[in-house]
Amino acid sequence: MLHISVVIVNWNTQDILINCLDSLYKNTNTPFELFIIDNNSATQQAKNQFHPLLQSKHNCDAKILTEMDTEDKESLNSGTGKIDIIFGNIATKYENVHFIKNKKNMGFAYAVNQGILESIGEYVLALNPDVMVTEGYLDTLFEKINADKAIGAISGKLLSMENKNMLDSAGQTVYKNRFARDRGHHETDINQYQEGCVFGTCAAATLYRREMLLDVKLNNEFFDNDFFAYLEDVDLAWRAQTRGWKFYFVPNAIAYHQRAVSSRALLKKIKRKFWGWRNRYLMIIKNDSLLSIVVNIPFLILCPIKSIKMLRKRRFIQKRRLVKHCEVVKWFVPYLLHAKQKCAHRG
């Protein structure tokens, strides 16, 4: 049985995708299958024209390319197959690669869900194209999670691509005010975060147990499609915490993250801020206490359609809760701790 499936969502990041794949294949000994889901990247050379493709089992608006023979790969690489030349090169260079091409940008959550649904691995590595893993990253995560059935997801230490002495993520933290951030983000790495359980892990390079994903899914969604992008990994971790799953951090598995490569233009930055603001409230409605919902009634009024959808999802989540709310919120820390940590660890 194939133990690991790797899912990469691509949106205008083709130029750096090869670096990500090179690091993954070079530094991984455990066999895996790879799914690349493209969200209608602007540089694709042919729209709605495909080399022999199979329909996706789960989405009629997407196409999936799989199991090409040598002749097929050469045809793609020459451009006659009318699919983006970069993906043709990937299909030629690497084995066991599958592509899903969406007709429009469906968002990260939707696209990674497609990859999870199509893949067969017992574990699923969500990997951003702007991440480069070091030797043994995936092997280490696989060994740890496979040894403890209570671990639902596991991640290593993510360092900044621009400053390799600076932390990008050492797990995720949620504050008492319900703002979430990557633990250690922009702190100088002095090995201040030790191996152990965390509230959540960054989906840029997290290995998820499929059993956990199936346990927390809503309407055939693992990550919430309504989030589109940002905080969907925190939301999934929150749901998993209510079901008693552990999230785990391993500091000796190291990867480098460039962060937000596909959304650096001003308009995209504004959208990113909006999604982060909105999705915080969506998380609260779905997962938090009734008191928190009452406190945030103004948001429900501003975004009634999304709020109603979240209330419906909330009913399902709360009905299946195994861990009391008071136990989950023990993970939440005072926001003042954020400022203290930044002062203590910045070089």
Rank of each mutant, 00 (worst) to 15 (best):
A150H: 13
T201L: 07
P129Q: 11
E211C: 03
I151F: 00
E211P: 02
C197I: 08
F199Y: 07
D189G: 04
A203N: 15
T134P: 08
V124L: 01
E211N: 07
G156F: 02
N165S: 11
N163R: 15
D139N: 15
Q194D: 11
G121Y: 06
V124N: 09
E135H: 07
R209M: 05
A203M: 15
D148H: 11
H185K: 14
F179Q: 14
M212W: 07
V124T: 14
T173Y: 05
K157N: 13
D139H: 14
A150P: 10
M212D: 02
E122G: 05
Q172K: 14
A203C: 15
V131Y: 11
T140A: 09
I120T: 14
A205S: 15
Y123R: 05
A170V: 05
L125Q: 00
E143Y: 01
N177V: 06
P129W: 01
S169R: 07
S160G: 06
F108L: 13
H186D: 11
I120W: 09
E143P: 05
R209S: 15
G156L: 04
Q194C: 10
A153R: 00
V133G: 13
E118S: 03
N146C: 10
L138Y: 05
Q172P: 09
I145K: 01
A109V: 00
L167H: 07
G136H: 03
N163P: 04
R210F: 03
Q194E: 12
T173G: 00
A205G: 03
E118M: 09
I145R: 00
M212C: 07
L159D: 01
G196K: 13
R183Q: 01
G196L: 05
Y137P: 10
Y175K: 09
D182N: 12
L127G: 11
A180E: 05
V174T: 14
F108R: 09
A170E: 04
A205V: 01
K149Q: 12
F108H: 12
R181G: 11
Y123N: 13
M132P: 02
R210Y: 02
G121F: 05
A205Y: 04
Y175S: 03
V112G: 04
E211F: 01
Y208L: 00
G115I: 05
Y110V: 10
A150I: 11
V124G: 07
R183T: 15
V131L: 10
E162G: 08
G107R: 04
L117A: 12
Y137W: 03
L159H: 03
M161S: 12
K157Y: 11
D130V: 06
T140N: 12
E162W: 10
E135F: 03
M212E: 06
Y175P: 01
N177A: 03
I116Y: 08
G200H: 07
R181T: 14
